[in-house]
């Protein structure tokens, strides 16, 4: 930007200073996962492969295998992302490009829900899931997670659909397409940046999701990685090395995305994602 003072290295130094805690935290996690002992941020002793025993042993302290949790997490995050992108895109397409009664109020409702704090509904959702027989199932949590993030997704995708050319869509209709065909063969391919943005956001958000599975899942066989890791926190004796290793393993996709897709991440999150 046009605000580059001559003494900018000083400001950079200040920036480094206030960012130190984040760097220290990450470094601490990595070192603790790798070394026998860490004093502050200084590794003491040798590399500690035993922290990673959870990868090879079937179960640690009576927990299900981490591979089960990993599989659940992948299924959970993947399904949530696909559902959310698909359902949000369909609704956003209709809101952006079709005439129907109550279209404006519908959009207003989506925007209101986007601002509405959905966590305050957990208690009632618990009850609803029990009534539906979806309590303690991954399917139930998936539906809840996808639904709660839906207003954001619809809002985001609407912005992308709004930019498509009307002429092009008219051309497709004259060429013989139905709206459904236009959606799949013309509109969706052209909002790929939006799909990628929403998909990434949904994946990350579902991958880290804790409170929903924690509240709605009991059986260890349905644990996600969040629950698996959290189960160590409740122990009287905390095995920091093991937990750091589990945490590093769990957060690996996030770190990779951070390392290789910074620009992309910034773009997605600058696009108005909820705080």
């Amino acid at each position: 930007m046009a605000l580059l003072p001559r003494n900018w290295p000083l400001w950079l130094l200040l920036l480094v200073l206030i960012t130190l805690p984040i760097g220290a935290g990450i470094l601490w996690l990595v070192l603790t996962a790798l070394y026998n002992q860490v004093h502050g941020l200084i590794p003491v002793g040798r590399l500690a492969p035993q922290h990673w025993r959870f990868l090879f042993e079937g179960s640690v302290g009576g927990r299900p295998s981490i591979w089960v949790a990993l599989k659940n997490s992948l299924f959970f995050a993947g399904t949530v992302a696909v559902l959310e992108v698909l359902i949000a895109s369909m609704a956003a397409y209709a809101i952006s490009r079709m005439k129907f009664p109550l279209r404006t109020p519908y959009l207003g409702m989506i925007l209101t829900l986007h601002a509405f704090p959905a966590v305050s509904l957990l208690i009632a959702i618990y009850y609803i899931l029990r009534v539906l027989g979806l309590f303690d199932t991954l399917v139930g949590v998936i539906l809840v997670k996808a639904s709660l993030d839906l207003p954001l997704g619809i809002w985001l995708m609407k912005g992308f659909f709004d930019q498509l050319s009307w002429d092009m869509e008219m051309a497709a209709l004259v060429d013989g397409a139905s709206r459904w065909t236009v959606f799949w063969r013309v509109a969706l391919p052209l909002v790929r940046p939006g799909i990628l943005a929403l998909g990434t956001f949904a994946l990350l958000s579902a991958w880290g999701e804790f409170i929903l599975p924690f509240t709605f899942i009991v059986s260890a066989k349905s644990w996600t990685l969040a629950l698996y890791m959290q189960s160590f926190m409740k122990e009287a004796f905390v095995d920091y090395g093991l937990m750091a290793a589990v945490g590093l393993f769990y957060a690996l996709p996030v770190f990779l995305l951070f390392l290789f897709g910074q620009r992309y991440l910034l773009n997605i999150y600058s696009g108005g994602v909820k705080g």
Binding site: G25, I26, W28, L29, G40, M229, M233, Y250, V254, F258
Partner: peptide, 26 residues
């Protein structure tokens, strides 16, 4: 981007890091 990390890290991992940093020595 670095400041985005706390937001995109799984909360369980993020909180664990805080617990570790705030724990007793060593």
């Amino acid at each position: 981007a670095l400041w985005l990390l706390p937001r995109i890290l799984p909360p369980v991992v993020y909180v664990f890091i805080w617990q570790g940093l705030l724990a007793e020595a060593p």
